[in-house]
Amino acid sequence: MTSGNTTMTRDTILKVEHLSMRFGGLMAINDLSLEARRGEITALIGPNGAGKTTVFNCITGFYKPTMGMITMNRRNGEQHLLERLSDFEITKKAKVARTFQNIRLFSGLTVLENLLVAQHNKLMKASGYTVMGLLGIGSYKREAEGSIELARQWLEKADLIDRADDPAGDLPYGAQRRLEIARAMCTGPELLCLDEPAAGLNPKESLALNTLLNSIRDETGTSILLIEHDMSVVMEISDHVVVLEYGQKISDGTPDHVKNDPKVIAAYLGVDDDELEEVMHEELDGGSL
């Protein structure tokens, strides 16, 4: 908190500056800067191929950006430059967790085990890096019970408690999405990055997802950065929207501001105008928030 070398305000959790990512001749992201604020849900939207997932992969360390700086500002005042950390360190040290566009669960492990794997680092320490735990010395046993308790809490929040002992691969699609989010939350993140969490969900599942995301934000104070195609989800739950097109930011602001931005409308009109307009009307008429 005392690091005064940046202009970052206290409530900025993630700051992306001049980020560029090049794949061969393709400039997937071009000089992108954006900020996400603590305790908010920030949405990253844009037409197909705008580079949203690439931004995510840069933030979470799965790609090394060609240029730019990504700063994560933790609650305890620690600052981490994410482009310098490797993927697992970003989760472990910078406390950024993520989900994937095509769900990546440990399908042969049970739902509960999936959540226990997510608490790996905490449990490793408690087990004295396995040695003490193997000999039965130290706090491992208590900590292990605690981890199951934490898993139970998240299973209840994600409405998966009845399926706790079933293999994760056996869950229906919507439940798998919620499990992946619950699993990411079990790493104790301060920033949760969700890659299209509502993709492929039916309306009922979509609703359950919204409830889960809202409870994450309100109850744990975890900030959320999400990529989403489904405009109704974006407009309903996000506090702040960033619009990308061709790897560049074309708009940035509140949902209301963004949806009235002519540049955004133009960008979307070029892609799938019907859907957008429909959503716009719904939003304007219904105003569910």
């Binding site: 993927d87 989760t91 990546r104 669960l105 440990f106 399908s107 042969g108 794997v117 790493t187």
Partner: peptide
């Protein structure tokens, strides 16, 4: 089961 998911969980 999934190496990439492992890394995303800080392992």
């Amino acid at each position: 089961e999934d190496e990439i998911a492992c890394r995303s969980l800080g392992i």
